[in-house]
């Protein structure tokens, strides 16, 4: 049986009167890329923020690498976070630091006894793998949206995570850059042997990057399976309509 790296059961989360997640069940298996699709505000990002302890669920269970996230203390949570790479929607590069400093930031704080040469070598290797070796001394403000995303991914990879979480990796990018980012997500899985959750509402991204698709509607997963299973044989009208980039409210 395949090893589960993330197990979610009956997860519920509300913000005031708004119930965002209403009993979500989902598993992520080792080595797979799982795409979570859903319209804006459906709780996709909330789900992965609970996974890294940025938010706390109201009810239900969220186990990551066998550990119940909500019960972890600060130290244990930080140890778990080192095994999870989080690529933010807007890249979240520290805008007062150069690319080198951005990438050094998590490394020097979490990996002890590294020499200056080892740090530089690691940074250069990762920048090479995302195709931006020349950006090392640039400021984030000098980079394009696609370049920022790539650097953001490189920064998360610097700690060798086991799980990668991508929050809207292609949002706001042109189709060619989107394709580059999609290929990067696939490449990261192959090169670094990660398991990933990709949050998106871009179906091209979903098709290229995902082994399985999960469609989140009304706070619950309405369909989970391969791209063809989910969309070709969709019983739920809204899932089908998602395929046509069109939502019909019930």
């Amino acid at each position: 049986m395949e090893e589960k790296v993330v197990e979610i059961q009956g997860l519920m989360k509300s913000f005031g009167d708004l119930d965002v997640l209403k009993g979500v069940d989902l598993d992520l298996y080792k080595g797979e890329n799982l795409v979570v699709l859903g319209k804006s505000g459906s709780g996709k990002s909330v789900l992965i923020k609970i996974m890294v302890g940025l938010l706390k669920q109201d009810e239900g269970s969220m186990k990551v690498l066998g550990q119940e996230v909500s019960t972890l203390g600060t130290k244990a949570l930080n140890e778990l976070r080192l095994k999870i790479g989080f690529s933010f929607q807007n890249s979240a590069l520290y805008d007062s630091m150069t690319v080198r400093e951005n990438m050094e930031f998590p490394l020097v704080r979490n990996v002890k006894n590294l020499t200056r040469g080892e740090i530089t070598r690691k940074i250069e290797e990762l920048l090479d793998s995302v195709g931006l070796p020349q950006s090392i001394n640039q400021m984030p403000s000098e980079l394009s949206g696609g370049q920022k995303k790539r650097i953001g991914v490189a920064r998360t990879l610097i700690l060798n995570p086991e799980i990668m979480l991508y929050d809207e990796p292609t949002a706001g990018l042109d189709p060619i850059t989107c394709m580059d980012i999609n290929n990067l997500i696939v490449q990261v899985r192959e090169q670094y042997n990660t398991s990933s959750i990709v949050i998106t509402h871009d179906l091209t991204c979903a098709k290229v990057t995902g082994d399985r698709q999960a469609v989140l509607l009304d706070g619950q997963f309405k369909a989970i399976g391969s791209f063809d299973d989910v969309f070709a044989h969709a019983k739920d009208g809204r899932v089908k309509s998602f395929y046509d980039y069109n939502f019909i409210d019930s």
Binding site: I84, Y94, F105, R109
Partner: peptide
Amino acid sequence: GSMKVTEQIDAMEVSAT
């Protein structure tokens, strides 16, 4: 404030800082 809005603070937190 700007770091908070652009999720830079969250990024620090998830990198165990």
